[in-house]
Design a protein around this nucleic acid. Structure first.
Length: 257
DNA sequence: ATGGTAGGAAGCCTA
């Protein structure tokens, strides 16, 4: 069994104790991190390695930043999303570990939609779809996990009407997310829990966690070879309720060996 | 209630 999780930690520096604690409790084989907000040389690599994990990182100053932690060796590490070598934003990191190709994805938020941020998001999603399609050609188990900043359907949002024009809910974002699924990827949580209302993110503002008002925007997308091995998928609410919590909580799945 | 909170940076930006 291989347990693969994804967690937007909103600063690895602030969240290191929470991450170390969760690694010990949940014991994932692979943990994909987003919004590390850390230069590679400042990433707390030794502290993570002391927990029994190998580490690869793709960071930048202040914003974004992704990482992959794995109990197994990390091979064939690939930094950045193909399709625009000029893009300076650290949002994509890929590696092979435990016989599975995994990617840590921090998809652009895209707000406000009337600015250039929304077209950037959509173009980034087009690049992701192209690369995801190329990966399917290898016919290997692939898990593309991360903060997609996309609410796939109204069931994934506490107030779809209020959020209808937000970049996370807009039809252009949802259409591109569906393109990934139509291309052959399986979204693990919704596939195993077709009707369940569940969230992975609750805004710090307005006490959304306390009110139970969240969004489901962190996803694990599986190639057919990975989906055939899918056993369980769930969202761990524990870390969101803890002190000094990230605004996201981990989503995880298990694959049969 | 068009605010509210959190993080990193540097005297605002991003989410």
């Amino acid at each position: 069994m291989l347990k693969i999780a994804s967690w937007n930690v909103n600063s690895i520096k602030v969240r290191l104790p929470a991450v170390v604690g969760w690694l010990g409790n949940a014991r994932p084989d692979v943990l994909l991190l987003q919004e590390t907000k850390s230069l590679d040389e400042a990433f707390p690599r030794l502290e993570i390695e002391d927990c029994g994990y190998n580490v690869c990182v793709h960071g930048q100053k202040t914003y974004n930043g992704v990482a992959i932690l794995s109990r197994r060796p990390l091979e064939d590490v690939s930094v950045g999303l193909p399709g625009n070598e000029e893009d300076p934003q650290a949002r994509y990191l890929e590696a092979v570990t435990g016989g599975v190709r995994v990617a840590s994805i921090y998809l652009p938020n895209g707000n406000p939609v009337e600015t250039g941020k929304f077209p950037y998001k959509l173009a980034w999603m087009d690049r992701l779809a192209d690369h995801a399609q190329a990966l399917l050609g290898h016919e290997e188990a692939v898990v593309l996990g991360g903060d997609y900043n996309v609410v796939p359907a109204d069931l994934d949002c506490y107030d779809p009407w209020a959020w209808r024009d937000d970049a996370l809910c807009r039809i252009e974002s949802r259409a591109r997310f569906r393109t990934l699924l139509h291309g052959g990827y399986v979204e693990a949580f919704r596939t195993l829990h077709p009707q369940r209302r569940a969230y992975t993110f609750w805004d710090y503002q307005a006490g959304r966690w306390q009110k139970g008002e969240g969004l489901r925007i962190d996803h694990l997308l599986l190639s057919p070879e990975a989906a055939d091995r899918l056993e369980e998928c769930d969202i761990d609410l524990g870390p969101r309720g803890a002190d000094k919590a990230s605004d996201h909580t981990p989503v995880w799945c298990t694959l049969r060996e």
